[in-house]
Write a protein that binds this DNA or RNA. Structure first.
Length: 157
DNA sequence: GCCAACGTTGGC
DNA sequence: GCCAACGTTGGC
């Protein structure tokens, strides 16, 4: 089993929203690298760190799992959707997604600042300078380390 | 194939 | 709200 991190802006779709719906098609990803991770890397059952971005306290807030193989993102064909892509055709889809299933909320938010303070997370894709990838791989070691922080009092200022 | 202009992401 | 960093687009 592999591990991943997926970002979402909580004002658009939060961990509480995922808990409410249970399983959600991860639509709207319009970045080739992120698409390729979903299409070529993800398998059902893979672990997902759910990350809140572009908000007051960015950080990891929950655990989810990949709940499907990749399949074409239907919103690319929907003219009324903000994710509509006129270059996409049903027989030649450009964008893929997977379903994501809620597992649990973390006891506390593992803040971005706290992750940055971990020397052992050097090289973690999330922390690369200027990285804006919304779907990215997490090694087993990074996964274990990040989740171990959950039960520590509070990592940083 | 180069690269300037533009739009977007996302931390702060 | 600001702005740095990045990806994409399109003229040439």
């Amino acid at each position: 089993m592999r591990h991943w991190l997926m970002k979402s802006e909580p004002e658009a779709f939060s961990i509480d929203d995922l808990e409410r719906v249970g399983t959600e098609p991860w639509n709207g990803v319009r970045n080739y690298q992120a698409r390729n991770f979903m299409r070529d890397g993800m398998r059902p059952g893979d672990g997902v760190l759910f990350y809140h971005s572009n908000c007051a306290v960015p950080g990891v807030v929950g655990v989810a799992e990949v709940a499907s193989e990749a399949y074409p993102d239907p919103t690319q064909f929907e003219q009324a959707s903000p994710y509509f892509d006129p270059r996409a055709r049903p027989d030649a889809p450009r964008w893929m997604l997977v379903d994501v299933r809620f597992k649990r909320k973390l006891a506390r938010t593992i803040r971005l600042a706290e992750l940055r303070a971990q020397p052992r997370l050097e090289g973690f894709a999330l922390l690369q300078r200027g990285s804006r990838l919304s779907v990215l791989p997490v090694t087993r070691g990074q996964w274990d380390l990040i989740l171990a922080l959950e039960n520590q009092p509070r990592g940083l200022p």
